[in-house]
């Protein structure tokens, strides 16, 4: 059974799956790199964005690949406002309090969704959901290929923002030396909020790309959070290219370990790699010096 006939499709599949993981991780790593907090609300925000994409399709009839251009900016605004007016204010700038506030936010978002829309599992039925490209030895699902391309586009956009814009330079300055940035007149609260907004927008993109093939219910986003943490660590906390490479790598590892160890035990492989990386090279495989 481990002939190339199955090995190569499994590898390809790992890359496609990993791309979506990378998108979720991009937002997380950005927020971590600048604010140095582990955002517990990440999964809940992903769920919220998936609901937004779901209703955009069901109520307004907008395809997720189009609604992403509305939902991503919308979630940027949501993220900005959350950081500026909730997380920043309630946490008084202390890491441990940010932790609790994001945790509280996760509880609020998840249960507001439950209260509003019940626990039903919802799926959308787009015409291209089952379109595939025949490679002869395997089929590649079109929506997954779109996701694969999108992760590079999003990473490129992030990279351009970071290197070419003023706010990007400010974000990098704050990430590197907060106090110094503050002294040189940078509005740190604003930079934090923009970063959180960008991270949340990444999650919104991931949500729109997931909806054609995945489902949403009030807990759906949580399935991606632990894996995203793993990718963030693997790629180096705060590193955008690291998150992309880490995501693809974890996707392949997951696919292969599922092939060799089975799906239940296969997940252990991911976390063992995670632990090993932390113990041996905590700055991540692709991270700069710690």
């Amino acid at each position: 059974m481990l002939s190339p006939v199955i090995l190569i499709p499994a590898l390809l599949n790992g890359l496609l799956t990993g791309a979506v993981y990378a998108l979720v991780a991009l937002g997380l790593t950005l927020i971590y790199g600048v604010l140095h907090i582990i955002n517990f609300a990440h999964g809940a925000l992903l769920t919220a964005a998936m609901f937004a994409a779901y209703f955009a399709f069901k109520v307004l009839g907008i395809d997720p690949y189009l609604s992403v251009f509305i939902i991503a900016p919308l979630f940027f605004a949501v993220g900005y406002a959350l950081q500026r007016f909730v997380i920043g204010l309630a946490s008084h700038g202390e890491d441990r309090n940010m932790l609790l506030v994001t945790l509280g936010l996760a509880v609020v978002i998840e249960n507001a969704l439950l209260f509003g829309f019940r626990g039903d599992t919802r799926t959308i039925d787009v015409p291209y959901a089952f379109q595939t490209i025949d490679l002869g030895f395997t089929y590649l699902a079109v929506p997954r290929l779109v996701g694969f391309v999108a992760v590079f586009v999003v990473a490129l956009i992030l990279w351009l923002i970071m290197s070419l814009t003023d706010i990007g330079r400010a974000i990098r300055a704050v990430a590197k030396e907060k106090l110094g940035a503050q002294l040189s007149g940078i509005d740190v609260a604003h930079v934090y909020a923009v970063t959180f907004g960008l991270g949340t927008a990444c999650v919104a993109v991931a949500a729109c790309l997931l909806m054609p093939t995945y489902y949403v219910n009030p807990g759906a986003g949580n399935a991606f959070v632990l894996i995203a943490f793993t990718i963030v660590v693997l790629g180096g906390m705060g590193s955008v290219p690291g998150a992309v490479l880490g995501g693809l790598m974890i996707g392949v590892v997951e696919s292969l370990s599922s092939l060799f160890l089975g799906d239940s035990l296969g997940q252990v492989g991911i976390f063992l790699i995670f632990i090993a990386v932390l113990l041996v090279r905590p700055q991540g495989l692709f991270g700069a010096n710690a």
């Binding site: 909730v86 509280g104 936010l105 509880v107 609020v108 998840e110 249960n111 507001a112 439950l114 209260f115």
Partner: peptide, 13 residues
């Protein structure tokens, strides 16, 4: 269902 946890989360924050 859920509303109590929304209130809980807000009060927690």
């Amino acid at each position: 269902p859920g509303l109590d946890l929304v209130v809980f989360g807000i009060v927690l924050i």
